[in-house]
Design a protein around this nucleic acid. Structure first.
Lengths: 196, 196
DNA sequence: CTGAATCCTTGATCTGGATCAAGGTCATTT
DNA sequence: AAATGACCTTGATCCAGATCAAGGATTCAG
């Protein structure tokens, strides 16, 4: 049960549980990858070839702007998915990077394999639909917060909702995710820690 | 072919085309609603009961904050979907409003009906998965722009990508969607219109 | 053990965009 | 034909957060 692919199967069982055939197909059509800290799963200009499920570790997906500044779009901890869906489906070059923040283990499904899974076992259509819907809802709420709340409120909310990330990920990356500079986040932290 | 439900069927044909049985099921399980300008499809506190496809008109989805300020999350023109997916699937009260900005015609699918469609015709799982994926990718890009670009750049991009909306929707709403005040958007417009 | 990344912090200053206030133009209602 | 309200604009002022600059604390490679 510590086998990465079994972990992935168990993950799907939290949605519409898989039967034996689906489980086998999933294992055949996925593969385990290990990344060292700072290793890239995707770099700007490449096509995003795999839909990745994190079994262990922590990754981030970000874009680099014209000035070389990075903007974090998403983190993925254990049991979360990470992929540039646009690039993956269109098989077009991505503008994003996916980097491991810790030594990580992911289970990858490539484009052709996922299509096979979809057509041979429609349950995957269903499960991936639900997975994406959940991510979509979260992203919508994040967008609303970005427009409706101050940096201070956004940071407080982040720490409350993602204590795990707040503890494991450097503040520079959290700042970028929240849309503020690391300096300003540092000041916010100083303020809320000791409102003496 | 000017029948709203036929328009909806035609829309699905752009993904995995529907067969006769699916088409019939879809028509049975959806219903047409007409909204006058300023009419609400959803109000804060209600459960979002319908997945809505816009056949004619224009709607917006927004949240109202503690100070009574509105924050636009999404617009929907002809051939676009609008729904609070979180509320819809969990059948929990929404914090959002969906309002018609023009007299509009929408085709609505209610929760129980959509579940029926999903289980009786797995193709709907597929099609709705793809529809959501596309919306998700757009929202991700919007999130990145929100963090990486200035208000001026975001507005320019909006006008370029959504000339239709820029023409049909009052600037107050565009400002809110972009995350700036109407006053500031007005100044941006004045600047770019005549850099004399 | 040592130099060099990373990461965090703090200060001084600057600015994009908010806020407050007022006036102007239409369109819709009565 | 007023009158209300929706929408846009412009000015004056203010502030949240950026930028620039420097220093300290860990961690890590050689």
């Amino acid at each position: 049960m510590t086998d990465p692919q079994d972990v992935l199967c168990a993950h799907f069982d939290r949605y519409l549980a898989l039967d034996e055939a689906e489980r086998t197909a999933l294992k055949e059509r996925s593969r385990v990858r290990r990344l060292k800290r700072r290793g890239f799963l995707l770099q700007e200009g490449e096509v995003c070839r795999s839909y990745a499920y994190v079994v262990e570790g922590c990754l981030r997906m970000y874009e680099m702007d014209a000035k070389g500044v990075e903007h974090n779009l998403q983190f993925a901890l254990e049991n979360e998915w990470i992929v540039d869906i646009g690039s993956f489906h269109a098989e077009k070059p991505s503008s994003l990077f996916i980097e491991a923040l810790e030594p990580s283990v992911v289970v990858c499904i490539e484009h052709a394999d996922l299509l096979q899974l979809y057509t041979e076992h429609p349950k995957f259509d269903r499960n991936f639909r639900v997975i994406i819907e959940d991510q979509f809802v979260e992203l919508q709420q994040r967008m609303l917060r970005r427009n409706a709340s101050s940096a201070e409120q956004r940071y407080a909310h982040f720490v409350e909702q993602h204590p795990e990330l707040a503890a494991r990920v450097p503040n520079v990356h959290i700042a970028s995710y929240l849309g503020v500079t690391p300096e300003f986040l540092s000041r916010l932290r100083a303020k809320t820690a000791r409102p003496s």
